[in-house]
Design a protein around this nucleic acid. Structure first.
Length: 381
DNA sequence: CGTCCACGTCTAC
DNA sequence: TAGACCTGGACGG
């Protein structure tokens, strides 16, 4: 699943489950995937992972002792050294909207597995790239995509754009003038100061870091325990009482309080199917009374999940003062999104299967961070 | 059953 | 800067 902290968690997951494990044989790809074949084969190899922003890199490293006999046939020359040994290989993945890694029994590969690596042991297990919507990509001999921004978490010192959404540049830049630090501080001291006195930029890192330190696999399909904890952690995204707006790209931005002077005006209803939504009411400028942080204390976690499951559509997109009412009215009808998952279909068979329920749309925190007004209040989102 | 929506890129106009 | 690329859950009728 695809956001910064999640990609990083996926790399941690891979390194954890693959620690000390020997993989063997060929790398297999589903029929339906349009991504490239991975022409790697080794009798014994190990897998490790690293992440950078929204990319993850797997490194397949054959063990030294290997005497490769047959596997070179028909393969690209560059894959093999002169003595026929399989060379190490990097694969770079992007997760699209629904990618993830799972480590499972090889006999029962997950539905929507599109690339998998077998362990040498018997019975075999497999590390699988699973991607229901198939927006995910991988590149053989991949490198970090050169024109991507730096990693918010691991390359913080390079991540200094300082541009909150819906604020105009002048305001942002002028505010930063007042935070000037002595120019003779070292970079690391500047970074330390920022950590101790977090501003929006610092929180762009701190928030994903919180997700990482939550442990587990965060959110995503079929991790109900983790997902409940994650939803409890969310302070803005899909939280009743918070507001949302669509930006110029049709992306829903969640925030608390005023959207800022450059907020998109209500006009721009969604492309194509917008007739129904042709917003009769202009966006209410009223500030929603903020839901107190952790106000749900005392209710059961199931209730909390249900409370957050209301969907926003049409004129509800801009949630103003009436939101609390609407939310209350909706509450009795909202279904829990938690559903058990069941069957295990063949990974090469992508026929629609109604018997498998997944949660492809868990909550996220990104909007909360990006749309947050500047101040400590950000922290409450 | 049909419509809307979702954690992201890509590329064709 | 619109679509395109996909599946499947939630919801409305």
């Amino acid at each position: 699943m695809p956001e910064g902290p999640e990609l990083h968690l996926a790399s941690c997951y891979i390194n954890t489950v693959c620690a000390g494990l020997i993989f063997s044989g060929k790398v297999e790809k589903s029929e339906v995937s349009k991504n490239p074949e991975v022409l790697f084969e080794s009798d014994a190899y190990v897998i490790s992972a690293t992440s950078r922003g929204k990319e993850i890199k797997l490194t397949l490293t054959p063990l030294k002792e290997e005497k490769n006999t047959l596997s070179g046939r028909g393969r690209d020359r560059e894959e093999l050294s002169q003595n026929g040994l399989q060379q190490p290989m990097d694969l770079v993945f992007r997760f699209g909207m629904s990618g993830s890694f799972k480590f499972t029994s090889a006999a029962e590969l997950p539905k929507h597995a599109h690339l998998w690596f077998y362990t040498k042991e018997s019975p075999h297990r497999a590390l699988c790239f699973v991607d229901c919507r198939r927006f995910g990509r991988w590149e053989v001999h991949g490198t970090w995509q050169p024109d991507r921004g730096p990693c918010v978490m691991l390359e913080y010192e390079k991540f200094r754009l300082k541009i909150p959404p819906f604020e105009n540049a002048r305001t942002v830049l002028e505010a930063l003038q007042h935070r000037k630090q002595s120019p003779d501080l070292t970079l690391s001291k500047k970074v330390k100061l920022k950590q101790e006195n977090p501003d929006l930029l610092e929180l762009c890192r701190a928030v994903p870091m919180e997700v990482i330190h939550m442990g587990g696999m965060g959110y995503g399909p079929e991790h109900s325990d983790d997902a409940a904890a994650f939803e409890e952690w969310l302070q803005c995204y899909c939280v009743p009482g918070m507001r949302s707006l669509r930006d110029g790209n049709g992306r829903t931005i969640w925030f608390q309080g005023e959207p800022g002077p450059m907020a998109p005006k209500g006009k721009k209803s969604r492309k194509k199917r917008s007739r129904v939504n042709a917003d009769p009411q202009p966006p209410s400028p009223k500030v929603t009374k903020p839901v107190p942080k952790r106000s749900s204390k005392g209710s059961s976690s199931q209730e909390k999940v249900a409370k957050r499951s209301g969907r926003k559509k049409g004129k509800e997109l801009v949630q103003g003062a009436e939101n609390a009412k609407a939310h209350e009215a909706r509450k009795p009808n909202t279904r829990s999104r938690r559903k058990a998952s069941a069957s295990q279909a063949s990974p090469t068979n992508e026929a629609p299967a109604a018997d498998r329920k997944r949660q492809a749309s868990a909550r996220r925190s990104t909007g909360a961070v990006t749309a947050a007004p500047r101040s400590r209040r950000v922290k409450a989102e």
